[in-house]
Design a protein around this nucleic acid. Structure first.
Lengths: 338, 338
DNA sequence: TTGAAAGCGCTACCAA
DNA sequence: TTGGTAGCGCTTTCAA
């Protein structure tokens, strides 16, 4: 008997008529159950069920000024790390009773246009998980009272909320781990140029080796978080006279490309050279890779992000800060003590 | 000067007041520009720009009964094939001026609950790219006039629109290719039990070998589209006395697991045994895998899906059929002529 | 080409 | 606890 009313959508008015109460009562039974007597509520729910009625959340949003929709802006869905982020964030969003609007910005266009069209949808918040945004656009969002948060990155000097893995600390961890297991000739292969993720991982890693008394840390520019970039960087490293005994790649995918290059150059991992990645993407734990890496604390990062957005805080008073969540070194088979 | 009105959101009424026209005119200038004189339209747009006005699409949806939002239901974001689907679909949706609401159904719960909450959001259509749906729920959606489409799967016997790769034909292609390149002892490793994708790939493959006069095609149950399932199936195959000379895995990820198992068993791919996968996920083309596989025509499938949903057809008259789009065999390094 | 007015389905206030 | 009523911001007739 569900909504058999050919084409007509059932409204609260319809339900009200059927059981002889006012439309307001139907509304209250759904949006504020305590304000209706248990008996009435039961009758409403039963009638709604049999008529196939469900509140129209669009109409609700118009008056409450809340859509319960959170936008996620994300390019690069083909990089295996991003789906992980999307999965974690979306599940966290749904766990809080919200829904996810997914935006993939066009490759060429600026993200500002994307954001503008997002704002039309009256989303409650925007989480940007790739690309950045101009300070102009940040101002527009602020004026609209729409909280914006950068996930997995931050923009130094711009006052936008951000949640990121503590990349500096993790870089340190990797350096200390390698040093502690007897390595003394480290190398770092960087990823996307200009990304804070990249710069911070390097900074933590390189500085720590310095503090540990190791003067020279070889640094090779990868240029992108890709298999090919890792491959090429490792090829260069493999050809050096004085080879490093360990390489820290700025991402797992780069590390996998790097390992392939090292093996092609006749080097064994980890016997001849240790390799550490970053992200702990699903592939990293596959037996064929078994990559030592840094796991980003995605669930904690997602929770921190949603907390910062203060979705339930009607006053709209939220902290605008950058929050760093520590990662975890996961030891697998691509490193070994020297 | 963008929307500096502390907290107040700019409405069409505000713009109207500023330039001394009616609110209707503002509305028309945005939703139906031809119905307004060029001069007026220009004034409206200028004023809107400087005030930071943008139409509220929620309010618009309430009256037009179209949200321009399409829901995608997808679990398994960690499997690398699904992000590819999501990416392609979302970009196609955006190219048609719509937005994507992403739903990840809870692992335990039925998809019916998910769909119910989706309908509240008044989405214009629902694309289900993982899991299936009950015929009961299909009826509810039909009553609500919300078109539903299954992507990458179909339910035989249930009248729901569906778009899928032509898995039977691709299974044939693989068989013919292997036969043509001198193989004569084929094996098929199946994936998720009960999935049409799986059954169709097998059917096309096995039947074709029969037609080609090869009686026995070894069939091993993998049970899931996972690395481990492929690994275990290949381990069993490697132990057989009379080994196949080629294995067709129901998915790329399984094939990669299988290759790892074969290599551990001391077999060389493709020298001792050829391997073919399915999907052409990004990893498949990485130099370290270089997997021969079947590429699913995702862009074409996405276009077909959106066409079938007939979003612009106000009459709501849509074909309810299953459409199969042919895939392409991509020859790489895991197969060779015998 | 433009404006006035009705109303989309709901929430929220106030009175009963 | 319930009902009446006034909108939320927009689109869409219908007249002017």
């Amino acid at each position: 008997m569900h909504g058999r009313h050919k084409g007509r959508v059932i409204t609260a008015e319809d339900v009200a008529r059927v059981i002889g109460v006012s439309q307001s009562t139907i509304s209250r039974a759904f949006s504020n159950p305590e304000s209706v007597s248990p008996a009435t509520r039961a009758r409403v729910l039963t009638a709604a069920q049999s008529l196939g009625y469900q509140p129209n959340v669009i109409a609700r949003s118009l008056i409450t000024r809340r859509t319960n929709i959170i936008a996620i802006v994300m390019a690069n869905l083909t990089d295996p790390y991003y789906p992980q982020i999307l999965d974690t964030l979306t599940q966290a969003i749904q766990a809080r009773g919200r829904q996810t609007l997914l935006f993939i910005p066009p490759e060429d266009g600026t993200i500002d246009d994307t954001l503008a069209s997002l704002l039309q949808y009256q989303v409650d918040a925007i989480i940007i998980a790739s690309a950045s945004l101009t300070s102009e656009m940040a101002r527009v969002c602020a004026a609209r009272q729409t909280p914006v948060l950068l996930f997995n990155r931050y923009v130094p000097g711009v006052r936008i909320s951000a949640v990121s893995c503590d990349n500096v600390a993790s870089g340190r961890d990797v350096a200390e781990f390698l040093h502690g297991s007897g390595h003394s000739r480290p190398a770092f292969v960087s990823g996307e140029h200009g990304a804070t993720t990249n710069a911070d991982r390097r900074a933590g890693f390189v500085e720590t080796w310095h503090e540990l008394g190791v003067r020279s840390c070889l640094q090779v520019e990868g240029g992108a978080y890709t298999f090919e970039a890792g491959f090429e960087a490792a090829t260069i490293i493999a050809r050096r006279k004085r080879r490093p005994d360990s390489i820290f790649f700025a991402s797992d995918i780069m590390a996998l490309g790097g390992i392939h290059a090292l093996q092609q150059a006749g080097l064994r991992v980890p016997e001849d050279i240790s390799v550490v990645g970053f992200d702990d993407v699903p592939l990293a734990s596959w037996p064929s890779f078994n990559l030592t890496t840094v796991r980003q604390p995605l669930p904690e990062m997602a929770e921190a992000a949603l907390d910062m957005l203060a979705l339930d805080d009607k006053a709209g008073r939220r902290r605008r800060v950058t929050q760093f969540v520590p990662g975890t070194l996961v030891q697998r088979g691509t490193t070994r003590a020297r």
